[in-house]
């Protein structure tokens, strides 16, 4: 809910309680804890300002309360989860969240840090000490010999609020500078669908294309495959997911799509 005075002390929108936040997180696809449901809930397209109040529900993400009624705050898909009414936005900017993994491009250097464009309204900072894991002396060391302008990094947001731009960290496993591969941009709000329930979608794509993936919650995907054809197929798949993100049974349809495409490319190769 986007209530006016609803900021917590960190300056973030206090829209959820802890449990709910964890729930959403798992839905967003940090693919660890999620009880598998038999059927996906049906999704309805709602407009900003649409009345959602049906029974005794609580206002979840993407909603607001006025006159004790719940309204949608964005153009998105209605989702009822337990007590909460949520609206998953169809479009929209990436708003950084602490704990998110993002892919960014270094756009500037200062003496002891890098400025990273994370394709969001805010520019992130990565400190040299964090990257090098040791004290950094700018008198002896040149920051650009480690990461230069134009390089791509995969990092985690460790702090962000309304008084401070996001700060990145590369300390965790799998994070750091990205070499080679290919970057694809997609709508950030659709990244959860690319991952799927417990990573079902991304695992499916990995099985078929044998590509390595790094997924940024900001809608940037890095991938590296053995063959150009594989990478190209992934691009096609991602575009398809983006288009059909709000439809039901997407994973099955993607599976069909991949098999069809594979067959076609096999035939092409045979002819050649």
């Amino acid at each position: 809910m986007f209530d006016e005075d609803n900021f917590n002390e960190n300056g973030e929108l206090n829209n959820l309680n802890k449990d709910e936040e964890n729930k959403i997180k798992s839905e967003i696809g940090n693919n660890e804890t999620k009880s598998e449901k038999e059927e996906e809930p049906s999704r309805k397209l709602v407009m900003p300002g649409e009345l959602l109040n049906e029974g005794n529900y609580k206002a979840g993400i993407g909603t607001y309360i006025a006159d004790k009624k719940i309204y949608a705050a964005t153009l998105g898909l209605l989702e009822i989860k337990g007590q909460y009414v949520n609206v998953i936005p169809i479009k929209g900017p990436y708003i950084p969240k602490v704990g998110d993994s993002v892919i960014g491009m270094v756009i500037n250097t200062s003496i002891v840090s890098w400025k990273v464009d994370i394709f969001s309204p805010y520019i992130a900072t990565l400190h040299a000490t964090n990257y090098l894991n040791r004290p950094f002396n700018p008198l002896r060391d040149d920051i650009r010999q480690y990461i230069d302008i134009g390089d791509t990094i995969y990092a985690e947001i460790i702090s962000f609020n309304r008084t401070r731009d996001p700060v990145l960290s590369v300390r965790n496993k799998g994070l750091g500078k990205l070499k080679g591969g290919r970057l694809i941009h997609m709508v950030p709000t659709k990244v959860p669908r690319l991952i799927g329930r417990r990573g079902s979608m991304i695992n499916l794509i990995k099985d078929y294309t044998h590509c390595k993936f790094k997924i940024g919650q900001n809608g940037v995907i890095w991938l590296q495959g053995n063959k150009f054809e594989d990478e190209f197929l992934v691009v096609k798949i991602i575009r398809k997911i983006e288009r059909e993100a709000h439809t039901l049974g997407l994973t099955d349809r993607i599976k069909e799509f991949i098999e069809k495409e594979k067959k076609r490319s096999d035939v092409d190769n045979g002819v050649n």
Binding site: P48, G62, T74, L75, G76, K91
Partner: peptide
């Protein structure tokens, strides 16, 4: 504005 996905009270 609604098309841009910006959070709004309504149209």
């Amino acid at each position: 504005l609604a098309d841009a996905g910006i959070a709004m009270r309504g149209l």
